[in-house]
Write a protein that binds this DNA or RNA. Structure first.
Lengths: 232, 232
DNA sequence: AATTATTCTTACAGTTGGCGTAAGGTTTCG
DNA sequence: CGAAACCTTACGCCAACTGTAAGAATAATT
């Protein structure tokens, strides 16, 4: 039995260069009980946003450095949470473009606070039920169900297989040390039996072979393994 | 291995009493490749909508018989797909109310066709990744992972348990005949062994007992079983 | 080429969870 | 009370997953 008690504290990240509006938004959201962070430096907005681990991104389009559109695309390509675009630009082509690039909703300023809150709540509800999809290259892994998606195919991994795949995907295209795999699988980096990792790796490869993807896992002799998921 | 080939044909159901607008919408959507059905009789709109097995519902609020709000609530309580409200009523409280009752998006007429199409596409994308959640009363069942959600708790059912729960939930609050349970579980309504159903029912009840929900399955002597999921 | 370290593969066994069968107990109703 | 309907428990089978062990294959080194 699993108890999913209480509501997670949602971290909303505001990306808006107008200080007044930013603080107003922050007030509105905090009164509603959300945890809020604002981006104030727009030199490297992407890194700043990601560092906040956003549960939702409130995004303006007119930004000093990188445009909101670009931010939108980059965040979505990393599978980052719901994005709500809030902007003064009310051209329909802006809305279409933003939605096309992955924004999940589009509101125009001025916006009634209750409307904003309702839309935020809606997105939260939707995303709460969504599977946790880890993306890397051509691979997509549902960390909850252990389903692996590649192109049009999918297959079900066992728990060990899923863990290994997760670690490989998170690190890709870097090399994963054997030590780390041991740590993730058995909690101890002091790996007693070299073999057990290899056995599980063989099993993962055999499973991946069902969709001709086994060769994507490369062994780096003396170090560990590496996932090559971009070419074939 | 499972191949999820091709894109399903999305069935959009239009619920709109103005004939002209209805046909215009139908045109727009069909040009885009959607399969469209319209509700023309509003005597029993809920049944009519459900019969269409909608992949998305385009809903007006001002309807002759049952109001759009009520339709919205009922559809969502049955876990029926994305609902996009399209209405001439542009009061913010209508929007809030609709979203509150489960609508997934809210657009006001007149609406630019491209905006409508973009929003529809967005909802499709979101729902494509969503788990298939069957709702009935206080129960929610993920048909894919066999997870059952009740209030703030959740537990994992086995395949048989999930199937039984599914049938019970779909029928609720009606009675499910033993015959039908046999059919769903073992493909044959000619049930050879009475006992096996009872055993599985005991198991389901034992599982539900973990969250004190066993008593929600009532035995209807000589007929079958019934799920009571609304009160406690 | 021979040696050695590293990695891979296969087979086996233990564990777990889900399921059907069987047998006996309990409840309900006339 | 007695029979029909229903419930419960225990048993054994099967499939999936995992760790262990032993030997084979591969790569690096001398």
């Amino acid at each position: 039995m699993k108890l999913s008690k209480g509501v997670d504290i949602v971290n909303i990240v505001i990306v808006e260069d107008d200080i007044f509006l930013r603080e107003e938004l922050q007030n509105i959201l905090q009164k509603e009980g959300y945890s809020v962070e604002s981006i104030s430096s727009f030199d490297t907005p992407l890194e700043a946003i990601i560092a906040c681990k956003p549960g939702l991104v409130l995004l303006d389009l007119n930004l000093p450095n990188l445009s909101g559109f670009q931010i939108c695309r980059h965040l979505k390509s990393k599978g980052i949470g719901p994005i709500l675009v809030l902007t003064a630009r009310n051209q329909i082509r802006d809305e279409l473009h933003a939605l096309e690039l992955g924004a999940d909703d589009f509101l125009t300023k001025p916006c009634h606070p209750k409307r904003l809150l309702a839309r935020i709540k809606k997105l939260q509800q939707l995303y709460a039920k969504m599977p946790v999809l880890l993306k890397s290259g051509m691979f997509q892994l549902d960390l909850k169900t252990h389903e692996l998606y590649v192109a049009e195919q999918s297959l079900l991994l066992s728990e060990n297989e899923s863990t290994m795949m997760k670690v490989l995907m998170q690190a890709a295209p870097s090399i994963v040390k054997k030590e780390q795999l041991f740590y993730e699988l058995w909690g101890s980096s002091a790996y007693v039996d070299q073999n057990i990792l290899q056995v599980n790796m063989t099993r993962l490869r055999k499973t991946l072979a069902k969709i001709e993807m086994a060769h994507h896992i490369k062994t780096i002799r003396g170090v560990g393994y590496q996932l090559a998921g971009h070419d074939s």
